[in-house]
Amino acid sequence: MRPFRYARAAHLDDAIAAGSESGTAFVAGGTNLFDLMKADVLRPDTLVDVSRLPLDTIDDTPDGGLRLGALARNADTAYDPRVQSRYPMLARAILAGASPQLRNMATNGGNLMQRTRCYYFYDTATPCNKRAPGSGCGAIGGVNRIHAILGASPSCIAVHPSDLCVALAALAATVRVTGPDGERTVPFAAFHRLPGDTPERDTTLEPGELITAIDLPPQGFAAHSTYLKVRDRASYAFALVSVAAALDIDGGTIREARLALGGVAHKPWRDSGAEAALAGKPATPATFAEAAGIVLRDARAHDHNAFKIGLARRAIVRALTEAAGGKHP
């Protein structure tokens, strides 16, 4: 790693003030940041350690929801009894990601901030508009088996790597942020960005802003939800395609549906059109196949990832079928 200055923030205000300086990065769990610094992809000259700020609790909210502290560890979040009973889809998503060691280190806020695992982003010998804006995209015309089928641009076809975020998208979570201009809340769908012609920006956070918490609404779809992850290995691999599926079913009829995909786009891909199409329909395979068709209507493959379109179609139908059955394998 290149040398850098290190400062441990004792208070949120100190962290925000220090984090607004250019060349400064926040560190909490560090699992993705140090990986990228060792690869020379990120070169901050100052690290502000926020890991000891008192933002690591999980608390009930007055509306019946749950507030996940930004610094609560992924493992502590997944095994929290309230998360397990009220938001089982979220617990499953977290436990589908990384390894136990990494989940013990990685924080909820850090999970939202993790970078793509596109090999061209990691390889400083190749062009990458996300790492070096304007240098081109190595994946377009290169090896692109793991890349996006939805929402990509001529600048970038990288995918967001998170499992946790796919469940948060389906749950319509809210991200609480503090920055130089004070506090604000960001709907989860507006937190991550599509690449457009500025793929160097993964999120809508402004410089110096720090995630303080993630709020879950009261509706956790505990009775009918699942997280399905399809990957090259049985464990400890990023998703080729993943699906967070949640249904509110009344007598065989879908009252409300949530559907979000991972591994297919630059951000967790929630499709409210498909959700609307599911509402009021019988919870049957035909209904689910129709929803899959809506999600994938604009899907576009590159040289090596056409298999993802069919894989996503089948994964959506299977996830919705499992959710409808109330199966939690």
Partner: peptide, 8 residues
């Protein structure tokens, strides 16, 4: 922080 802190 910016997404890609690459200081000069």
């Amino acid at each position: 922080m910016p997404d890609s802190p690459r200081s000069t």
